[in-house]
Deep mutational scan, measured.
Amino acid sequence: KMTIRVKGKELARRIAKEMKDRNLKVEIHEHGDEVILEIE
């Protein structure tokens, strides 16, 4: 399990899509400006 902190929703969406393309499970937690992606 891996956690990534990202500034900006646009970048977070791009990373999430990339991870889904690799068949990984992604959970997205938004905290205002910061987005936390949990990847399994």
Rank of each mutant, 00 (worst) to 15 (best):
K1H: 13
K1T: 07
K1P: 09
K1C: 15
K1N: 12
M2F: 07
T3A: 07
I4L: 03
I4A: 03
I4C: 14
I4Q: 03
I4M: 04
R5Q: 09
R5A: 10
R5W: 04
R5K: 12
R5C: 15
R5H: 13
R5D: 05
V6H: 01
V6S: 02
V6M: 04
V6N: 01
K7H: 12
K7Q: 10
K7R: 11
K7Y: 05
K7V: 11
G8Y: 07
G8P: 08
G8N: 15
K9D: 07
K9Y: 04
K9I: 15
K9H: 11
E10D: 13
E10N: 08
E10G: 07
E10Y: 04
L11E: 13
L11P: 04
L11W: 01
L11A: 10
L11Q: 09
A12H: 03
A12L: 03
A12F: 00
A12D: 02
R13H: 13
R13M: 14
R13A: 14
R13E: 15
R14H: 11
I15H: 00
I15E: 01
I15D: 01
I15M: 07
I15L: 11
A16L: 09
A16E: 08
A16H: 04
A16P: 00
K17S: 09
K17M: 09
K17L: 08
E18S: 10
E18A: 13
E18L: 10
E18T: 10
E18F: 08
E18G: 08
E18R: 11
M19H: 03
M19N: 01
M19Q: 02
M19A: 07
K20R: 15
K20P: 01
K20F: 10
D21K: 13
D21H: 05
D21M: 04
D21T: 07
D21N: 09
R22P: 02
R22K: 10
R22T: 03
N23L: 06
N23V: 02
N23G: 15
N23D: 07
N23R: 06
L24N: 03
L24V: 08
L24F: 12
K25P: 03
K25G: 04
K25W: 09
V26K: 01
V26A: 01
V26H: 02
E27R: 13
I28Q: 04
H29V: 11
H29I: 14
H29Y: 14
E30F: 14
E30I: 13
E30M: 13
E30K: 06
E30C: 15
H31K: 11
H31I: 14
H31D: 14
H31M: 13
G32P: 05
G32S: 05
D33P: 03
D33G: 10
D33K: 06
D33Y: 06
E34S: 08
E34W: 15
E34A: 08
E34V: 14
E34M: 14
E34H: 12
E34P: 02
V35W: 15
V35H: 05
V35R: 02
V35Y: 15
I36A: 02
I36F: 10
I36N: 02
I36V: 11
I36Y: 10
L37R: 00
L37D: 00
E38H: 12
E38P: 00
E38A: 06
E38W: 11
E38D: 05
E38T: 14
I39W: 07
I39Q: 00
E40D: 10
E40W: 15
E40K: 10
